[in-house]
């Protein structure tokens, strides 16, 4: 692999209202002295889709999982994550509240071994919502927003595991947005899906930007260019370039980015 200069970067700050930003974020796994993610400082605009791209092992998933502190148990995270004027990376911050406001959808669909509606209501009940009308409203709206309602409205009591992979992933999205988060983090949500399910998912995500800020990790560059407004390119644990998606894919400033998006990488 060609050795790129990891200190040469091009990172902009979007002009829109910023929903979430990080400053000098570093992630250390286990007892490693060497960080798996180095000095990542990015700002994510509100109600837009931002894509994080890069080869496997570039640190994009590590970075995404740090944003709602999913790495708490397995890694040390230094630096600042600023959300609503609070540094949510502080150990004093209530991490459960953080995750309620910053939801996450994973690479492999992971519905609970419960019925479709229970998948959505379980966390709502834990959060103290007991009104049955309210619960069933949330089930319906979140399933509609995730474009799954028409397929499952007659079988809400069926096991979620009986759904297809694509349906399961949309159920996971519905489950996340039923919590009414601000921000939705998606970690390669389409990698386990077939092309038709992927297209459906992308349409759904576009729709969701009306109400949510979305940050999506993807290894699929067409997908990134189709759906995102901004794109960050990760390489070997460093963010090398962050700009408007069009710019990244057509006139990148950094050689590594250029090589990656044109397929001449590695």
């Amino acid at each position: 692999m060609e050795a790129y200069d990891l200190n040469q970067t091009h990172i902009i700050i979007p002009p829109e209202e910023i929903a979430l930003s990080t400053k000098q974020l570093q992630v250390y796994y286990g007892h490693n002295q060497q960080p798996s993610m180095t000095n990542a400082s990015l700002s994510f605009p509100r109600f837009q889709i931002t894509a994080l791209i890069g080869a496997s092992g570039s640190g994009k998933s590590t970075y995404l999982r740090a944003l709602n502190r999913m790495n708490d148990r397995i890694a040390r995270v230094d630096g600042e994550i600023r959300y609503r004027g609070t540094n949510i990376n502080s150990p004093k911050v209530n991490v459960y509240e953080v995750r309620k406001h910053i939801g996450m959808v994973f690479q492999k669909p992971n519905p609970f071994a419960k019925s479709i509606s229970e998948n959505i209501t379980f966390a709502l009940k834990a959060a103290g919502i007991t009104n049955r009308q309210e619960l069933s409203n949330r089930v319906e709206t979140s399933l509609k927003e995730a474009a799954l309602w028409d397929e499952v409205k007659d079988s809400l009591n069926k096991s979620a595991l009986s759904l297809s992979g694509g349906q399961q992933q949309r159920l996971c999205i519905a489950r996340a947005i039923a919590m009414k988060p601000d921000i939705l983090l998606l970690d390669e949500p389409a990698s386990a899906l077939d092309p038709i399910s992927t297209t459906k998912l992308e349409v759904t995500l576009k729709e969701l930007t009306k109400k949510y800020t979305i940050i999506i990790v993807t290894h699929n560059m067409e997908q990134a260019s189709r759906i995102s407004t901004y794109t960050a390119f990760f390489h070997l644990g460093h963010v090398l370039e962050y700009d408007q998606t069009e710019k990244i894919f057509q006139t990148p400033e950094i050689q590594a980015t250029h090589d990656y998006v044109t397929g001449n990488f590695g």
């Binding site: 609070t86 949510i88 911050v93 209530n94 953080v98 834990a126 103290g128």
Partner: peptide, 13 residues
């Protein structure tokens, strides 16, 4: 309100 919630222990804690 959200800031307050982020900084206070909750039922989950």
């Amino acid at each position: 309100e959200i800031q307050k919630k982020l900084n206070a222990p909750s039922k989950a804690s």
